[in-house]
């Protein structure tokens, strides 16, 4: 009987809560904890690569729990990086208009004192804005440019796919179905036996 695929032989399909929590905390951390350094590095590079590429393409407006909640639910599966970016977006880049928090329009700057929108006007060719205290900010620009069209779609898609891929990673780390260090040893009968540290031999001759 040939050896079963390594992912099935001697499988430890017990729940690994620490690995699961670490995998949720940051992509790839659960596999690092389990001793799969190379896999963890590839997972981290892949998921964070998708996340950062999405941010680079679509800008910070791609992660928005208030204006884009459906997509945010998928993006939240990446874990804390998404929540950190969203918190930055909501608190540092959006403006407070009356009782609402919204994106600034292209002709609005953010008042650094109150966080409210203030119109941008041209002063000798320089875009300027007046704060609530009467100070002039020059040059004044919108806090960020909102991504639209294909750019916004692609950026949002990259980050959401990163979230869904992270679900696979968390499940894999939580149910560690891959024995990390295994080796085969020939027996006296010539058959190969699979040895897994901490367990008795499994597999063998047919």
């Amino acid at each position: 009987m040939p050896l079963s695929p390594p992912s099935q032989v001697g499988a430890k399909d017990e729940l690994q809560p620490a690995a699961a929590l670490l995998a949720i905390a940051f992509p790839g951390l659960g596999h690092f904890y389990l001793g799969h350094i190379h896999r963890g590095a590839c997972i981290c590079a892949g998921i964070m690569g998708m996340f950062l590429t999405g941010l680079l393409i679509g800008g910070i407006s791609c992660v928005d729990r208030r204006e884009n909640f459906i997509w945010f639910m998928g993006q939240a599966l990446v874990g804390p990086p998404t929540f950190i970016v969203d918190a930055l977006h909501q608190n540092r880049f959006k403006v407070r208009d009356m009782q609402t928090i919204r994106s600034a329009r292209p002709d609005e700057a953010k008042d650094p004192d109150t966080g409210s929108p203030t119109p941008i006007f041209m002063d000798n060719g320089v875009p300027s804005a007046r704060t609530a205290k009467g100070q002039i900010i020059a040059p004044a620009y919108p806090p960020y440019v909102k991504s639209l069209g294909r750019t916004g779609e692609l950026g949002t898609l990259f980050i959401t796919i990163a979230g869904f891929m992270n679900v696979i990673v968390v499940v894999d780390a939580a149910f560690n179905v891959r024995a990390p260090r295994r080796r085969t040893q020939p027996t006296s009968s010539g058959a190969r036996t699979l040895k897994i540290p901490g367990t008795e031999s499994v597999g063998g001759a047919s």
């Binding site: 992912s7 590839c42 796919i161 891929m165 990673v169």
Partner: peptide, 15 residues
Amino acid sequence: MALLIALVYKAVKHA
């Protein structure tokens, strides 16, 4: 995008 998806998927599934 395809490369990054494959990078993660194969890191999990490839023996």
